[in-house]
Amino acid sequence: MVRAFLGILGRDLKLAVRGGIGSLVAVVFFVIAASLFPLGVGPELNLLARIAPGVIWVCALFATMLSLDRLFQEDYEDGNLELLALGPLPLELVVLAKVLAYWLTTGLPLIIAAPILAVLLNMSLSGFTILLVSLLLGTPILSLIGSVGAALTVGLRRGGVLISLLVLPLYVPILIFGVGAVDGAIVGLSVRAYLFVLAGGLLGALVLAPVASAAALRMALE
């Protein structure tokens, strides 16, 4: 079972790496989108520092959503998904392996790029660590919830637009607690509560999201 899980994980990672620039789209989008904000609101440093945590988080939200529609779509189209569903590994764990691969290729690069953006947006240095921790806890939740949207729209034409409509309202709490943690750290408040809520959300999503995604995939394969 562990081998099958790691097999799917390795396969998806290999596909992402050999896909070349495709997997880097999310992080490039993240950087470009965030660097549009100074052009939109003006270059005043105080204002940028004030909105930096929110801008980084919102851009991360959109960036993780960007290629969600490819999460199951290719495997669905070429029949791989049916083989995976018939295989020995429960579909829930297949979903988990694919989401993990998705997060490693889209979520993790965002976390690496986030400090650069924070510098560009003149964010206070005291928030940097918490920004990284909150993204580390938050972006996997985004990928997990996103997998439900991706699974629900897998057989549909123009599923990509629909995913954003399904998934964005569900992202609200993560955004609030993610930004809250960074804002709290900048003004010197204790941020334990925020991080605990995010960690709890991650645990909950780890358990519940694969079940919902697998149910949706089974329906699509019927």
């Binding site: 549909l156 409509l165 399904l166 919902a212 149910a215």
Partner: peptide, 29 residues
């Protein structure tokens, strides 16, 4: 927004039974 997403998802399926099942998952989430 959740209502809108639910309605849009329901309408995206041609087969109403499939649409209903997808909608059910979304409503429960």
């Amino acid at each position: 927004f959740l209502y809108l997403g639910y309605i849009a998802l329901q309408n995206a399926f041609e087969d109403p039974t499939k649409g209903a099942r997808a909608g059910a998952i979304l409503a429960l989430v």
